[in-house]
């Protein structure tokens, strides 16, 4: 018989490393003579989309198109250290470095533009710099970049952002371990086949507080990807080991969900800005994944009254629990 259930999973998660562990990130923004931009940072985009949002941040600060930016990343020979892509920290830590470096170089550009245009109320918008009160007084970003170079001004800025926190009290464990926290909640609807132990996840509704979504469709993608991983974690993924040897040797044996297994996902972006984040933003990488398994396990409990305490809740494990319950 198939039985349906609904479950909720909630989480909060400390951004970055916390507990006094060094958590720093650098970014370097250079404006070339032709007005094009080179950004260097040790950050690694392994698919989550950080390259895109860093270009967006620099473009936002300088009033230029984000596709005019050339990004050089993850090269210890050429880029300043940004720390690892982990702990859901890149948007929050490296993002701040990006904004800081952009603002520093913007200050230099602003002083040149003030001198040329004779106005101080300047806006950087759509590749132009103009006076808000006298909009006819304007200069293209490209021309301004050239003027900066002609004056021999520093057209490259490096920024370093540090979110290292104090440690908690070692005796009481009390204190504020992290710079900030992310929050997320998910709902899962499942159908459990009591005859085989098979669990079908029918739907996931996932809400994540990201502070500010720098790129909303990117955030949705992160949430959907996180849910798919959480689904595998809950139901199928298992590393088998025997006497120190790995028995699960390939992706034919390590069962990640296929597109056929991933249910409709309804992502909700919650934006409660955090003052310490760039534009109020914080990370979503792990927060998108963490609530999925508990939501699914709670849904299973809701459906058949069986508590799963060991992962994965695969065919054999779940059916054993169902049989044990029937025996009682």
């Amino acid at each position: 018989m198939k039985k349906r259930g609904i479950g909720i999973g909630c989480m909060y998660y400390g951004m970055g490393y916390g507990f006094s562990r060094p958590d720093v990130s650098a970014a370097e923004v250079e404006i070339c003579e032709d007005g094009s931009i080179i950004v260097r940072s040790g950050e690694v985009d392994y698919g989550q989309g950080s390259d895109t949002i860093f270009c967006q941040m620099v473009a936002e600060e300088l009033g230029i198109r984000y596709d005019t930016i050339q990004l050089i990343t993850a090269d210890t020979f050429a880029t300043p250290n940004a720390g690892p892509t982990s702990a859901s920290r890149l948007t929050y830590v490296t993002g701040n470095a990006m904004v800081k470096a952009s603002r520093a170089i913007k200050k230099t550009l602003q002083s040149v533009a003030e001198e040329i245009l004779g106005e101080r109320d300047l806006l950087f918008l759509d590749e132009e710099i103009f006076s808000e009160s006298h909009p006819e007084r304007r200069i293209s970003f490209r021309q301004l970049a050239k003027e900066g170079h002609l004056r021999g001004l520093p057209m490259v800025e490096t920024a370093w952002h540090d979110i290292t926190t104090k440690d908690v009290n070692p005796e009481t464990g009390q204190g504020d371990a992290y710079s900030t926290y992310a929050y997320a909640a998910q709902l899962a609807e499942v159908a459990v086949d009591t005859e085989t132990g098979e669990v079908e996840v029918l739907r996931i509704v996932a809400a994540a507080d990201v502070g500010k979504a720098i790129n909303p469709s990117n955030v949705e993608g992160q949430i959907e990807g996180g849910v798919a991983m959480g689904l595998g974690y809950a139901l199928t993924e298992e590393i088998k080991e025997e006497g120190g040897y790995l028995k699960t040797r390939n992706l034919g044996e390590y069962m990640i969900p296929t597109s056929m297994d991933v249910p409709p996902i309804d992502p909700h972006i919650v934006e409660v800005p955090v003052s310490s984040g760039p534009y109020g933003a914080k990370g979503v990488g792990e927060p998108a994944l963490i609530p999925t398994a508990p939501a699914i396990l709670n849904a299973i409990a809701n459906a058949i009254g069986v508590r799963v305490t060991e992962l994965p809740a695969n065919l054999e494990n779940l059916h054993r629990l169902i049989r044990e319950k029937e025996r009682d």
Binding site: T236, M255, T258, S259, D261
Partner: peptide, 12 residues
Amino acid sequence: KLGRRKAMARAR
């Protein structure tokens, strides 16, 4: 067929 997932699954 009973498998561990809905596609690319060896039959259990």
